[in-house]
Design a protein around this nucleic acid. Structure first.
Length: 385
DNA sequence: GAAACGTGGAT
DNA sequence: TATCCAAGTTT
């Protein structure tokens, strides 16, 4: 009787082991071409941008939504940037969305709808760095490219038991990955390495017993593969504080504004707020409110963690008459339009806390079940003035 | 090279 | 609650 596993020829080298493992255990992902089918460069590019520092689970619903709404790079290029930002809302790292749109316009325009195939050309496009250029060249176009992401770093660091710490050891890891990368099927090899890192050679407790590279692995031989890659100590995350001003008009409209395109949450919508800093004084917060109306300080605080600081937000609420005009830079948003705003996660928390969560579309179209929410903060307001 | 740049899930 | 982590890029 034919046994495909028994018939498997012992891999000649580590890259063969990765490829044969990939053929049997590849993950079935929405953006991934089926075996023997050609890759769609648009889907590869879109998924690679979304996957930058972002988990597969988080990307899936966004990828589906983008592909359904903009089936081709031409469709995406023709869309207003505001709609792209809105669809991206909740996924994080918003400069990716702006660069995505800028890149789509370049491809649809100067490149006549076709992505360049070489790493060097891809690298010149907005939002495409060394990793993404290599990934697209290899996965979408079958070019030999050295694809090094966090998964590959971990697999290689363990394979060679590299003692020097990240990030300074990156050039060495890349050199090792270069030697491993085959001239045949470089795209499958790259995806195999990433799948290996995501499912077998995981950060905490690697499953060496079922790893196709275990015979080659110095890290396993060392007895403690999980200690690789060694990392330099990271800086402590400071805390900043600030105020958010929830102003609701008689008809239910909410006052919002749009953040500057550059910097934190660039181009996204927000409830007006104070500056966020380490020595924020709630007692003096109203001096930074967008208009002089009687605010009440709510009995809630919003906690949110960004990459480089934690944020604690005090919420102040006020009602405004129907005739109240929005101050410069601000606008009234009707309840029915709230779900179409490009609201980042932290602002969704604010609106959730004041009882306007029901007006929002869930992030990424996920059917998120209503978490047991604290009783409406708006009902338990403490006098601020 | 260092710092800025989001978010949610796992531990 | 605190820390780590996830298919990195830009300045």
């Amino acid at each position: 009787m034919y046994d495909p596993d028994a018939a498997q020829i012992a891999p000649f080298c580590a890259s063969d082991a990765v490829l044969s493992w990939y053929d049997r255990h590849r993950r079935d992902l929405p953006w991934r071409a089926k075996p023997l089918e050609p890759a769609d460069p648009y889907a590869v590019w879109l998924s690679e941008i979304m996957l930058q520092q972002t988990t597969v689970a988080a990307v899936k619903p966004y990828f589906s939504a983008f592909l359904a709404r903009w089936p081709s790079v031409h469709d995406l290029a023709a869309s207003p940037i505001e709609e792209v930002m809105r669809e991206w809302a909740g996924l994080g790292y918003y400069s990716r969305a702006r660069n995505l749109h800028a890149c789509a316009k370049m491809i649809a325009g100067a490149f006549e709808g076709r992505f360049p195939q070489s790493e060097a050309e891809l690298r010149r496009l907005p939002g495409i760095g060394p990793y993404t250029a290599a990934a697209i060249a290899a996965i979408a176009f079958g070019r030999r490219a050295v694809v090094v992401d966090g998964n590959v770093e971990r697999v290689v660091a363990r394979l060679f038991a590299i003692e020097a710490p990240l990030p300074s050891v990156r050039p060495l890891i890349r050199a090792k990955a270069d030697v491993l990368t085959p001239h045949e099927r470089p795209g499958d090899f790259a995806q195999g390495m990433m799948d290996l890192g995501a499912t077998i050679c995981t950060p905490r407790s690697p499953a060496c017993a079922i790893c196709p590279l275990s015979d080659f692995c110095e890290g396993r031989r060392s007895g403690d593969p999980a200690r690789f890659p060694v990392k330099a100590p990271k800086a402590v995350r400071p805390r900043r504080r600030g105020a958010a001003f929830y102003i609701c008009r008689e008809d239910g409209a909410v006052m919002l504004r749009t953040r500057p395109n550059k910097g934190l949450l660039g181009g996204m919508s927000e409830v007006p707020g104070s500056v966020w800093d380490a020595d924020f004084d709630p007692a003096a917060a109203l001096g930074q409110a967008p208009m002089r109306v009687p605010f009440k300080r709510l009995d809630v605080t919003i906690e949110h963690v960004f990459t480089h600081f934690s944020l604690t937000l005090e919420v102040f609420a006020a009602a405004a008459p129907l005739a109240q005009e929005a101050p410069a830079g601000c606008r009234w948003v009707a309840p029915a339009d709230l779900s179409r705003e490009a609201l980042p996660g932290v602002m969704r928390k604010v609106l959730e806390a004041v009882g306007r969560g029901g007006d929002l579309k869930p992030n990424g179209e996920q059917a998120r079940q209503a978490k047991p929410r604290a009783p409406r903060a708006i009902a338990s307001m403490a006098d601020a003035g």
